[in-house]
Design a binder for these strands. Structure first.
Length: 597
RNA sequence: GGCCCUGUAGCUCAGCUGGAUAGAGCGAGAGUCUUCUAAACUCUAGGUCCUGCGUUCGAGUCGCAGCAGGGUCACCA
């Protein structure tokens, strides 16, 4: 149990005994004392002064005295207006530090693998074009969220639902047949997903020309878009695909194969992966039987033309189509089906979807309809709605070429990492292999941290003209801090003298030491809160605060040069604990930390 | 137009369930490497927290109205 829990309980007891106020200790909130005041934790007493019928200062004094008398760890307190600042004895921090240094997994709860799993869906790409920065944000968030929930003790399963069929794929296929001259990734040396994406753009180009030509002949725009030969042919191709036409299916498999090979490479570079991959070509017919169930239950209705709808007007929304008049299903229908499939496949405790906020409405409707269909787990569906990635001049659009390509971006980051490392020139003793790996993890560290430190729910601005930083509040800053610490710990190991010395309980900490230890102390709470908020950003900001506090400590406190053995051991323990905490929090973000850099 | 989200320093962002004089990084200016890795550290400058009204002992945080920007309301996915 942590000191903060003891404190809230002691305060609750004081309130009862002094004023007869009964409050649940859990509702008492302490805040960390601001730097400019003496103390470690602060209680704001204003909420209790009315019932206590005394001045804020008096109430604070009385509670402070009562708690100090009952809690050995409280070494003192002071009162400023209605703020009661508790001072915690250094012996508490020293003992905490000794425990922490011995725990390699500090901050990480052991996942309960026997619990019903939390299923996280993320990535879910279309197979007609390569991944761009928007997908990168999705993938990094999905992976990191999974790690974060695991760190908080959940049994997590990561899934991907690949959107491998549909009109968009047919467009790429058709364009390749028309203009491709039999090009393959092998013949061109172009990565498979990029090659297919090239023909998606090619389709759009020719299609636009056709529409323009038709409009010049006097056709209105809507009709022209519908009747342009390429569009008609793509639609026919989709129909042939659904009928299982051999030729179309063979081409589809070939081109999707190229895309998968390309995606796998990008996933590998990003360091993300999945426990199970679903393909929409296998699941797109799911959900139809649910529609029948809904009709039987009377929560869905059929219109005169045969189409099936769900009436959500009572929930403040519109009517939602679930089956077209020709009996085919729409995206929502499939999603109902795949939700059920996934729930049954895993016996899931929670279903989390990492999907952009442009689909907020979709998920609102999905949850509502699942509920109406009688699934009790409908409220266990959670949409992690992340903000779009925007460029200085607006949203990214694949067809218009205004995208930041994922592979290009990673290439560029690795190049920058190499340049910066060479400039610093500290890696002479590394082999070429090690050096290459270092550039990679620094590049990805910068990229991942840049994306994950932001609140996931907010839109993100990316300016391609400004390269992603390696200094300041960045991934490499934290990686550097870790490498520097590891260097000290290695030397400490050589010279021996790691274990806690006699007399360490009597150590008086300096401000910098205490500050670092206090931040370490708050790691478990931070992980818990971050998991509850589905926000890796809280973990990223924690790691930064810790690294910053450590660097400040390191700057003006001797560690290995300290002659007093107990003090030296304590400081080495700070190093060990901070290194572990940085490694573990960076791991939650999917960022590797180097031993040297 | 209906519904949803966002608005904090020149730029990019923190600010937990309301609490003390609103914080970082970048950028600008000034310092610190004969000493454990200077990708670091220290200091300075920079704010009507979009506006107004309200709730409260107390509002960047909560409520209402307005302004600005974005998303979404497909027999697309």
């Amino acid at each position: 149990m942590y000191i903060t829990d003891h404190l809230t309980q002691a305060v609750a007891a004081a309130l009862t005994e002094l004023y007869g106020i009964s409050v649940d200790a859990a509702t008492i909130t302490l805040q960390e004392t601001r730097r400019e005041f003496a103390g470690d934790y602060t209680l704001v007493v204003f909420p209790y002064v009315k019932q206590a019928r005394k001045s804020p200062e008096t109430v604070a004094q009385e509670i402070g005295a009562h708690v100090a008398a009952h809690l050995a760890e409280v070494s003192g307190f002071n009162v400023v207006k209605g703020f009661l600042n508790f001072e915690i004895a250094d012996s508490y921090w020293v003992r905490f530090l000794a425990d922490t240094a011995a725990d390699e997994r500090f901050g990480l709860v052991v996942p309960a693998v026997d619990d019903a799993p939390v299923v996280v869906e993320y990535s879910s790409p279309n197979t007609n074009k390569p991944l761009h920065l928007g997908h990168v944000r999705n993938n990094l968030l999905g992976w990191s969220l999974s790690r974060l929930l695991e760190a908080a003790g959940a049994n997590v399963k990561k899934v991907n639902l690949v959107n491998d069929r549909g009109i968009h794929i047919c467009k790429s296929m058709l364009a390749w047949m028309r203009y491709g001259n039999g090009e393959t990734p092998e013949s061109t040396g172009i990565k498979g997903d990029h090659l297919v994406g090239k023909y998606y753009v090619e389709f759009d180009k020719h299609y636009k020309d056709e529409v323009k030509a038709l409009m010049e002949k006097g056709m209105d725009e809507e009709q022209a878009k519908r009747e342009a030969p390429l569009m008609v042919e793509a639609q026919q191709m989709l129909k042939r695909w659904e009928e299982g036409d051999k030729e179309v299916r063979a081409l589809w498999e070939k081109m999707n194969g190229w895309v998968y090979a390309g995606f796998d490479e990008t996933y590998h570079r990003l360091g993300v992966g999945f426990d199970k991959v679903y393909y929409e070509s296998n699941t797109y017919l799911l959900g139809k039987e649910l529609v029948q169930k809904g009709l039987d239950l009377g929560v869905l209705f059929r219109k005169e033309d045969g189409s099936v709808w769900c009436d959500l007007t009572a929930d403040g929304l519109d009517q939602k189509l679930l089956l077209r008049r020709d009996g085919t299903s729409v995206y929502m229908t499939q999603d109902l089906g795949t939700a059920l499939l996934r729930h049954n496949d895993f016996g899931a405790e929670r279903l989390i979807y990492v999907v952009g906020n442009e689909q907020d409405y979709h998920f609102k409707v999905l949850k509502l309809i699942l509920g109406k269909l009688g699934f009790s787990w409908a409220d266990k569906v959670y949409h992690l709605s992340y903000g779009m990635v925007e460029l200085p001049n607006g949203k990214m659009k694949s067809r218009e070429g205004t995208v930041v390509d994922a592979d290009d971006l990673i290439d560029e980051m690795e190049k920058t990492a190499e340049e910066m490392s060479r400039e610093h020139g500290k890696n002479d003793e590394l082999t070429d292999e090690e050096r290459k790996h270092l550039y990679h993890i620094l590049a990805l560290g910068a990229l991942k941290y840049f994306i994950l430190k932001l609140d996931p729910t907010k839109k993100m601005l990316f300016n391609p003209a400004e390269s992603i930083d390696f200094n300041g509040n960045t991934g490499p800053f934290i990686q550097y801090t870790h490498a520097r610490i590891r260097s000290i710990v290695r030397r400490a190991g050589e010279s021996g003298g790691l274990k806690n010395e006699e007399g360490s309980h009597a150590i008086e900490l300096n401000d910098k030491e205490r500050q670092v230890i206090k931040i370490l102390h708050s790691l478990p709470t931070t992980v818990r809160q971050a998991a509850a908020a589905y926000s890796p950003a809280l973990v990223a900001n924690y790691a930064y605060d810790l690294a910053k506090a450590f660097n400040s400590f390191y700057q003006d406190t001797p560690i290995l040069r300290e002659v007093e053995p107990a003090l030296k051991a304590l400081r080495v323990n700070i190093c060990i604990s901070v290194a572990n905490a940085l490694r573990n929090t960076m791991d939650i973000l999917g960022i590797e930390v180097p031993e040297r850099m």
